[in-house]
Nucleic acid binder design. Structure first.
Lengths: 236, 236
DNA sequence: ATACGATTTAAACGAACGTTTGAACAACAC
DNA sequence: GTGTTGTTCAAACGTTCGTTTAAATCGTAT
């Protein structure tokens, strides 16, 4: 038979094990033998089902990002169908709130996937960066343009900068690899075990992000690419 | 002879090459043969001069962090010697501004080290996290307590959270590994080639960080560990 | 029962990894 | 000169890596 078989859970077992191990030790730090060992399958199973280790990583993310991308676009479509363009806070809530909601839903990967995502976004391997660029392109472009519309007085370049800064704060927070945690002696509880980790995160992070986005603009000359040359002052 | 020799630059050549290559490809992604090849020295030189690859990474950082830690403590000492405790903005300027100033000074590593630092802070390897915890412990503790004093109405836990979030935004920004850059089509120019990259960074990032630090506190119950139970409202 | 495609298995592949070795080489002390 | 000490070098060490192979096994349709 060729399709629609009662697929044995080998594929899923591999994906689950890889998701957890990649999160714990990174891509290069996790060997195929560790993955297949943890999944309880034969070493050759990864190459049979996915083709290569790189393809496995891509599939680990595709499985989760499909939902994330769809949900983010759906929320934005919904907001933009309204009478007036959405406010910055609503845009951030849709973009980052959706992400953090994944942390509470185990069927979407839970905190394990959240931490994996945060850590992998900073992996230097070329194929990883290329993969994310492709996976994120549409969603990021849509949200970027929504922010342009919501903040008409802020130069586009500044908005892009702050979008990246928000993403950085978010990635770092959910990654929880913070080398400073041990230094400060304060556990920030973003562990995959805490059932309320995602709620804590959201309540903690969202005000910070909004505060950063709406901070006064920097002093120096703004490239006059747009309407008014907003000097120092509230960005929103 | 046993000391004060006319040390050949082998050690420094290795450190410089390792700094650049670790920045480009990460710790696990950079082989000893690549490092020694780029430095123009023999493969065995690393083990002879440093002992192991792990020890090499530690030395790459120790060489730069010595100055960074000293300067950060000096500025804090200076501020705290004054009549009244330093304001949050001054604390952040000392902590993050010092970091960014390294990016302009090639003798301190320049943008290459800045990017390396940003990327390595998220490496999952245990020995890396343990090393940073030790290197940062004193400085982070001092600055943390300075922020407690500067923001007496904000719960300690909230300050620690925002300190980590600022660090995340900063790390991500200086790392410049942003997978989203390719997606947004906007080059954020944090490349080691741009001589003004560090100034751009500082002007861009500092207002964002301050805005985040001073954002309204989250709604939910504040642990009554301190004086007044500040509900939602400006944090500073 | 037989045939066949899909999957699993044990074993091996060549390549690359970090590290070690022991000889060669340099600079200085006596 | 000889001896000593710090450094470089080519070569090899044993291990682990991702991947491939070919036989064995399973489930089902004929």
């Amino acid at each position: 038979m060729n399709e629609a078989r009662v697929v044995p859970d080998t594929r899923e077992r591999i994906l689950d094990a890889a998701e957890r191990l990649f999160m714990e030790s990174g891509y290069e730090g996790t060997s195929m033998r560790l993955i297949t060992g943890a999944a309880g399958v034969n070493l050759a199973a990864v190459n049979y089902h996915f083709g290569s280790k790189e393809a496995l990583l891509r599939e680990v993310f595709r499985r989760r990002l499909a939902w994330l991308n769809r949900e983010r676009l759906r929320l934005l479509d919904e907001m933009e169908a309204g009478a007036e363009p959405p406010k910055p806070s609503a845009i951030l809530e849709a973009f980052f709130g959706t992400l953090m909601r994944m942390g509470t839903d185990e069927s979407l990967g839970g905190m394990t996937f959240l931490r994996l995502l945060g850590r992998t976004l900073t992996e230097p391997a070329d194929f990883i960066r290329a993969f994310f660029a492709g996976e994120y392109a549409e969603v990021v472009d849509r949200y970027k343009r929504a922010l342009f519309r919501a903040l008409p007085d802020v130069p586009h370049e500044e908005i892009i900068w702050r979008f990246h800064l928000m993403l950085g704060a978010m990635s770092y927070a959910i990654a929880g690899t913070d080398a400073l945690q041990a230094a400060t002696g304060c556990e920030l509880r973003t562990s995959p075990d805490d059932p309320h980790a995602a709620e804590h995160l959201a309540a903690r992070v969202m005000p910070f992000l909004l505060g950063g986005l709406r901070a006064p603009l920097p002093q120096f000359a703004v490239p006059p690419e747009q309407q008014r040359t907003s000097g120092p002052g509230k960005a929103a």
